[in-house]
Amino acid sequence: MKRLPLSVIGGFLGAGKTTFINRLLTANHGMRLVVLVNDFGAINIDASLLQSKREDTIEMTNGCVCCTMSGDLFFTIGDILDRTERPDHLIIEASGIADPAKIATVALAEQELRYAGILTIVDGLNFPIQISDTAISDQLKSQVKCADFVAVSKTSPDQENVKQALTRLSVSAWTSADDIAILQSLLFANAILKPPKSEHTGSHPEYVHWSYAAPTAMTQSDILQRFEVIPNGILRLKALIPCDANHAWEIHLVGRHKTIEKCTAPHKFGIVVLGHDASISEIEIKNWWLHS
């Protein structure tokens, strides 16, 4: 059976995790998501999208399901893996103080899961103050440091004190938590061969996007060699590369984590890469893939 991609949403109390999850559940991504949250309190689904609501599960007309976590998280993940029909993607909301990496590790350990990133949401209004609170600063720092993607809520990501706080944690790329289109691309990479459309301005000045529809056949060692010379600044990559007559390689790069697996050949091959324009340009990505 196909691996189930798992992403973890981290961030401190009040950072905006639930707001983001609300948006994700109702966004037009065509994915059947299962989202595990701590609390339904703030999950607010428009009635027209609501199919059923029970004490611990909300089912939506778009095929997404939102459940509260009960008992042990990991065994709940086991239940989802054991379903006869697996969802397209599993999203877990980490609790406010939790280390998202402790949850996401299961995607590297469990063969039926695929690591699909940690997105940490940083509270744009309060983070600079919170991070100086010695009682919690270490844990807040780990939430940001383990993240593959960082999003800033409630304010412009360019606000000086947020920028300083993140830079001090060696985070060089982040986005606005309102930019649901780019965040979806980072988590799902489902827009293969189709550049993400912003809901705001129609372009993403802070992101570079490169895609290529006709990759040539490669062996596993070709792929590994290519990744040895990968330039810095690539946040997300998804590729379907021809392997032999009946097979393809499905490759995912999420932050620092890479998975390569053989699958049956799809109708369409291709590669899509997202990076941050502060660290990489489209031409650098192109040169890496086509000419390295």
Partner: peptide
Amino acid sequence: QEMAAMFPVLRRMQIDFR
């Protein structure tokens, strides 16, 4: 060490802490 690493073995041994 820790549940994330223990879970894949427990799951296949059909041990459920719940």
